[in-house]
């Protein structure tokens, strides 16, 4: 109770009861302690000499990186094209797989809540939890380096993401519209077509564009593990410490990200 009496018998108002306050303070204490411990661990494995030297190193790298080596752009056109393809085709492929998974995972469309739904949810969780770079690493070691590995990595990572958002949209549809279509004597698939699909189409379009935007960002770094795209050039430039080239690649990536965001905002505006 927030109101208590002090030793003189006067009523005192407090926001929290004593126990609540104790718990709160304890939680704060615990957080601070955990943070300090973690920090000590980080500090242990850090060579502080380098850190104190960091401003000088940063200035040094900056000085060497600028100005970017603009003529290097001619060697980047193909990687840029590859990066775009990885993101776009990867998104398309992901959507093709995410749609059935989403229908199997949504509790109102799944054929079996006991057997099918957990499997679909498992696919969603496992593909979502693992970063596309790890998927790329895995695929490069399975099918070899190249654009295809990157494309597959992006699409696998996107399945869970798209399917999760999509199945939530399916679960939120208006059941009365389904009922009305069922009452006309429509078959199961026709109910899907006329009752469910129109209702989730806007969400589907929004999700696709949203994920495509994210995939543009992610596909720029897949090359670091050999999965094609502009990241390959980044990696090789870093390996030979060609900082002006690195600077140009970063500029290109920034431009790509900004353009991607602009396009996705435009498309979303047009659809919804």
């Amino acid at each position: 109770m927030p109101v208590s009496e002090n030793s003189k018998g006067q009523k005192v108002w407090q926001l929290h009861t004593r126990n609540e306050s104790l718990i709160r303070w304890f939680a704060y204490l615990l957080t601070v302690a955990a943070f300090m411990w973690c920090w000590a661990k980080i500090s242990e494995s850090t060579t502080w000499y380098f850190v104190w030297d960091a401003p000088r190193i940063a200035a040094d790298i900056g000085g060497r990186a600028l100005p970017p080596k603009w003529e290097y752009i001619n060697e980047l056109w193909v990687p840029i094209w590859d990066t775009l393809n990885i993101a776009t085709l990867g998104t398309i492929l992901a959507l093709m797989m995410a749609v059935p998974v989403a229908f199997l995972a949504a509790s109102n469309t799944t054929p079996s809540k006991v057997f099918v739904r957990p499997v679909a949810l498992m696919i969603i969780v496992s593909t979502r939890s693992i970063n596309s770079l790890i998927w790329a690493l895995l695929l490069v070691s399975i099918i070899g380096p190249g654009v295809v590995a990157g494309l597959l990595a992006i699409s696998i990572r996107s399945i869970g993401f798209c399917a999760k958002l999509l199945y939530e949209a399916i679960e939120e549809i208006d059941q009365k519209q389904i009922e009305a279509i069922t009452a006309t004597g429509a078959s199961r698939w026709q109910v899907m077509l006329y009752g469910i699909v129109p209702q989730i189409l806007p969400a589907f379009a929004g999700i696709s564009v949203f994920r495509w935007d994210i995939n543009i960002r992610e596909s720029t770094v897949l090359g670091l593990v050999g999965a094609g795209g502009i990241g390959l050039q980044l990696q090789s430039s870093l390996n030979v410490l060609a900082w002006p080239q690195v600077a140009l690649i970063l500029v290109v990536i920034l431009v790509a990200v900004v353009v991607g965001e602009w396009v996705s905002a435009k498309v979303r505006g047009a659809i919804i």
Binding site: I42, T46, V51, A54, A58, L224, L234
Partner: peptide, 13 residues
């Protein structure tokens, strides 16, 4: 992360 590693050295920092 690549830039940070280049500036601060390898490790969790």
């Amino acid at each position: 992360a690549i830039l940070m590693v280049a500036i601060f050295g390898f490790g969790p920092l």
